[in-house]
Amino acid sequence: MSALMQATALVGRPVVTLAGDEIGQVKDVVYTVADGRVTGFTLAGRGLLAGPLRRALPWAGVHAVGPDAVMIRDEDVFTDRDELAERTELRDHNLIGGTVLTEGGTALGTVDDVVLDIGASADVVGYRLVTSEAIPPAGRSVLLPLPGKVAASGEALVVPESVAGLVVDDLAEFTAAVRSVRSVPEGERSCA
């Protein structure tokens, strides 16, 4: 069983142990590009004055990602924040707001969100972007089904030339598109 979720919706979600104790809230969703999936979350305390926490939540420690809380087994599942991502990455490598560029150098728009397929793992299956003039009309919010590995950094997401034609407007079409692409074995994906 898995469900599609947008990564930014997880920011601020409370992190709660199965014993019912609140540890904090999700601060950053850490997307490890080489794996094509989310590998963990950095945390912040709850409340107005709470700052970032040193301990972070690796994906292996997640019991469930629910609509109202991220559940974890207990307080032993944490790692140090530095194990999850470099400090500079946390500061400067926010994918949201980055440019979506094709391999040919055309800007398709800016990244608005990352779509995750959350089950046993949290795979990145696509992006929500705000279109540029390259996908008229400009300024539209569309979904780009793009499972698998892509080149991404804090400044840009580089996608194959062909994907501009794949963008869809709603989540139902997106789901269908993702399922069809993902049914093709990893090595045979045409968009590589």
């Binding site: 930014t8 920011v11 950053d28 969703v29 850490v30 950095t42 991502a85 990455e89 990352v114 991404a152």
Partner: peptide, 18 residues
């Protein structure tokens, strides 16, 4: 700083690899 989706590159390869 508000949270977001942070890109982590294993081994921290230089950004210009794409």
């Amino acid at each position: 700083r508000r949270g977001g989706v942070v890109v982590h590159q294993l081994g921290n390869e230089p950004k210009g690899r794409s």
